[in-house]
Amino acid sequence: MNTSERMITMEVLRYRPEQDETPFFQQFLVPFTDDMSVLQGLQYIKDELEGSLSFRWSCRMAICGSCGMMINGVPKLACHTFLRDTYPNTLRVEALAHFPIERDLVIVMDDFMAKLESIRPYIIADTPRALSEGEYLQTPAQLDLYEQFSSCINCLLCYAACPQYGLNSKFIGPGAMALVHRYNLDSRDSGSAQRMPLVHAEEGVFNCTAVGYCSQVCPKKVDPANAVNINKTESAKDYFLRFVTPKGAGK
């Protein structure tokens, strides 16, 4: 590893709504070592060069999902991307695509928060379980079914990657769909009848054109594209079989 300090140019999208008509790029010369992430570069800028630069961050280790941004045009977590991989070129950082900008690299995520709430991302039990009944038991096979989809950290990289969400933000989107799938597949859950109307709706899965970029940029290997496309099949089956299937037959 090269431990000597080098200088990289970081080009950062700025937007301060009280004084800027439109967003613009500002360049900073940032000293860095091989172990420094893009997030650390931004922190250097904020601490040493431009205190007014705004960005979200928290855990620094790809767990919290706060620092999603466009890095050289690709949706990535700033804490999960190294400055050394772009050097000696200029590194460009922008706010996540497809979302309104609140300030600098901070996006307005109200649209996603409303969608997340609408899919009921929690276990809905048929009958409430009393404490005295003890914990739910689940076999490793039952866990395997949904575990991958439960790794979502709501970082919104998949929404920034999804061309269909970019064209029509009414689309429920990859992240929320992956969570629908995660809860529907959980053996403790009986809420799928409450969630599926959203899957079948005009805002639902059929907006997806199977591009697959969402799964490619996902930092947690959730594979939302798979969740969406499995639910296309489920939704199509239900569309034709709903009149002959007894209510509650298909969980």
Partner: peptide, 12 residues
């Protein structure tokens, strides 16, 4: 929410 009629076209 309006149900999508896309399954017809999607299956074809």
């Amino acid at each position: 929410m309006k149900r999508s009629n896309a399954p017809i076209f999607w299956l074809l």
